[in-house]
């Protein structure tokens, strides 16, 4: 069996050559499903470290984009051996950049980190109309709807999406988180989301708290930060 720590390290160092080499050797060994699970966990751990290093200002946006690319290539390499593996799935997220907005860098970073944390993420892409969110939510019944936007105008689209979910009778079945660098407590309240953030890693913590922590059906209309505090009380 290969050295998992070394793999985690290679990924968190963004050393793709090394990481790919380890993964290719691994695939060539016809690994057991248990080993596949372990190796995926090691990759995810590497991504979690990348996220932490972004929080501590050791990595910057280009590094996160690079890490995202590295992870998708890693998954490509592993594909032939992961088809039967149930990796840990802690919850389901429907994600998209909302209508009118084409910016997807932040969304993709969040997606990558959420997947590393064990979420199954259904990514609807950019410029996603409210109805598309509604249809996907009906189809995959996620616990969480996550919306991204960096354009100020997109706040309206976020609100429309929340309204559309309400109209379809789905609002109470999901938690809604919104992200993007201009999102504030006020916009969160206006939009009617459950939480907001301006960093992907905080977003992941909030989602983890939702699915691993309290029941999803508690009524909490105010916007929450990751400690679960109402922002109005902060």
């Amino acid at each position: 069996m290969i050295d998992l720590k070394e793999l985690t390290q290679a990924i968190s160092d963004l050393n793709e050559e090394k990481a790919f080499q380890i993964l290719q050797e691994f695939v060539a060994q016809h690994p057991s499903q248990e080993d596949v699970r372990k190796i995926i966990a090691a990759c995810q751990q590497g991504m979690i470290f990348v996220g932490e290093m972004f929080d501590s200002d050791d990595y910057f946006v280009a590094d996160l984009i690079f890490a995202g690319e590295l992870m998708s290539r890693a998954v490509e390499i592993l594909k032939p051996v992961i088809y039967r593996t149930n990796t840990k799935n802690i919850g389901t997220i429907v994600l998209g950049t909302v209508e009118g907005d084409m910016h997807d860098i932040g969304k993709n970073i969040f997606k990558c980190m959420a997947e590393a944390a064990g979420f199954a993420v259904h990514d609807l892409g950019v410029d996603v109309e409210p109805q598309k969110f509604v249809l996907k939510v009906k189809e995959v019944e996620p616990q969480i709807v996550a919306m991204s936007a960096v354009l100020t105008v997109a706040q309206r689209a976020m609100k429309n999406t929340v309204e559309a979910l309400k109209k379809a009778g789905l609002r109470d079945k999901v938690k809604i988180i919104i992200g993007g660098n201009h999102i504030t407590e006020y916009s969160c309240e206006r939009i009617g989301a459950d939480a907001f953030t301006t960093t992907a890693s905080e977003g992941v913590s909030i989602c983890e708290k939702w699915v691993l922590g309290a029941s999803l059906h508690f009524a909490a209309p105010a916007c929450l930060n990751k400690d679960g505090k109402s922002l109005q009380s902060l």
Binding site: L14, E16, V61, A62, D63, I65, F66, E69, I105
Partner: peptide, 11 residues
């Protein structure tokens, strides 16, 4: 583009 350049900086 933003993605392409981010990868190029390293590769």
């Amino acid at each position: 583009g933003i993605k392409g350049l981010s990868l190029d900086l390293r590769r």
